[in-house]
Amino acid sequence: MSQTEHARSIRIPFESSQVIRDLRAGDALLLSGVMYTARDAAHQRMLQGLERGEELPIPVEREVIYYVGPTPPRPGQAIGSAGPTTAYRMDPYTPQFIEMGLGGAIGKGYRAAEVREAIRGRAFAYMAAIGGAGALLGRCIKEASVIAYEDLGTEAIRRLVIEDFPVIVINDTLGSDFYEVAQEPWRRTGGGG
């Protein structure tokens, strides 16, 4: 498994549904383009707004949401430390965003079975960035501007311009889960003593 040496450059928002459908669990990608940040609070607020008949503050068609709450930038920096947060907290909201045509999400950690099922057959990819590598990942973010829910502070929705942002595809349209695939060969125990 030397995916990382063969990382593919991909533009986001994804150029077509086919580009997303062609992604496979385990693919290492270097993403460049524009993506939006949102965590639990922002997801909840977006869906509550929709229920009231309001428009979403971000485009979703083939777009990518990054689950991150960055540290404040020092003067002269675009953003501070900006690694992924744990994705399962967004599980209750993700299927609805997939329905609306969202192209992908970046976080870390396992997704619920319902989310993996919601991804199957759709043009959506769940991708993981290296959790805790916030200083390094922040460097791939060239511009950051708050575009909605400023009162949420670190959890506000930001528009990020990124360059060669490294991720690994975890859950793909075929229903594969790369964590399962990657761990299996190294498992020596069923769980304890």
Binding site: G69, T71, S81, A82, G83, G132, G134, G138
Partner: peptide, 8 residues
Amino acid sequence: GVPYCQDC
């Protein structure tokens, strides 16, 4: 001087 992780 950028925090190691964004979750401080």
